[in-house]
């Protein structure tokens, strides 16, 4: 077994592009669920809105790349508005239903044949992120190493921009949640009627939260398709939403740094488990292939099962997540 290789991969995953993308998406979900109590089960839909917002406007409309990015955020904001208008006055469950349905509708529509001229259908859209990479100070095709981390130049550039955005947005969320605005959101999370009785326009705040968190989700989507240099409908499936929830729960909802730490732990584990399984000694590997059919394909599945097992342990021994406080958890039971 090549432990050096396994560790290099794991370390690189710790702060890699997936971590930035998923952490950003989880910051948005944290605004929704962690701070406002909104049950959004379609965060991937906002990522897709961002991704297609930029992809389609550049590829199909021939817009300037940077204008396309601005359009992506506006588009995600409008999507949040449309989803929120009919649901935010109703009981919490309606938002969950509508968001999960909307995210699937976006995916299925984007991959449909009718939309092919616009969205590229199943093949999607590529070759639109050139202007982003033109600005790169790193050689795109060259490998760069920093201590235990090793990435291609193009990824280093994505990471530099991505981490800057992630930290700035996280600090912005921290600032907001410490303000009276954030206090009102947290009050709404605890009890809408109490907030209403104290003069807060609950509907309006929930709408602001949905739009703000949705637009942060769009940043994640934009970054993801820039990194992949392509937009493909099927990457925006509901599993992504549940991964984002998992990440938020690992870190602990309603805590500022949870999304980043949660995403980092999640992806490090996934990559470590996968690479370890792939690097098992040939004898052991052959036995496992015969006994439990551990093929290369099944390894990809097994890593999720193992990570799921890890989550069960977390739920058992630290239900409040890494950052959550046990004291606060206990209040729910009073």
């Amino acid at each position: 077994m090549d432990w050096g290789f396994i560790l290099e991969r794991s370390f690189s995953a710790m702060i890699g592009p997936e971590v930035v993308v998923y952490a950003l998406a989880a910051v948005g979900l944290n605004v929704h669920f962690g701070y406002t109590g909104l049950m959004n089960f379609g965060q991937v839909g906002f990522m897709a809105a961002g991704a297609y917002g930029v992809g389609v406007s550049v590829f199909w409309l021939g817009w300037n790349f940077w204008i396309g990015i601005v359009f992506a955020f506006v588009y995600a904001g409008v999507l949040a508005l449309l989803l929120g208008l009919p649901t935010l006055r109703l009981r919490a469950d309606y938002l969950s239903l509508v968001t999960i349905a909307a995210s699937e509708t976006i995916r299925l529509l984007a991959r449909s044949r009718v939309m092919q001229p616009i969205t590229g259908g199943v093949e999607g859209v590529n070759q639109f992120a050139g202007p982003f990479y033109d600005l790169s100070p790193f050689e795109l095709g060259k490998f760069y190493s920093f201590g235990p981390f090793k990435y291609l130049g193009r990824d280093v550039w994505v990471l530099l921009v991505g981490w800057t955005l992630l930290i700035l947005i996280t600090l912005m969320v921290r600032q907001l949640m410490g303000s009276p605005w954030g206090r009102t959101l947290r009050a709404i999370r605890e009890d809408e009627d109490a907030a209403r009785a104290l003069g807060k326009n609950v509907y309006f705040y929930k709408m602001q939260s949905l739009m703000f968190g949705g637009m942060i989700g769009a940043v994640a989507g934009v970054l993801q398709v820039i990194q992949k240099s392509s937009v493909q409908a099927d990457t925006f499936n509901p599993v992504i939403t549940f991964t984002i929830w998992t990440i938020l729960i690992i870190g602990g909802p309603g805590r500022v740094w949870s999304p980043i730490v949660g995403a980092s732990i999640y992806w490090t584990l996934i990559v470590f488990v996968e690479n370890t399984l792939r690097q098992l000694p040939p004898g052991l590997r052959a036995t496992l292939e015969d006994s439990i059919q551990l093929s290369d394909f099944n390894i990809a599945m097994l890593r999720f099962i193992l990570v799921g097992g890890g989550l069960l342990l977390l739920a058992r021994f630290r239900p409040q997540g890494i950052f959550g406080s046990r004291e606060e958890m206990a209040l729910d039971r009073r």
Binding site: M172, Q175, L176, S179, P180, W181, G182, R183, T184, A187, A195, L198, G199, K200, Q208, F212
Partner: peptide, 16 residues
């Protein structure tokens, strides 16, 4: 503090 009305910091942009 939540109870106070007309708080400037309750507006999104001002909160920043």
């Amino acid at each position: 503090k939540l109870g106070a009305l007309d708080q400037r910091g309750e507006k999104f942009w001002a909160a920043l």
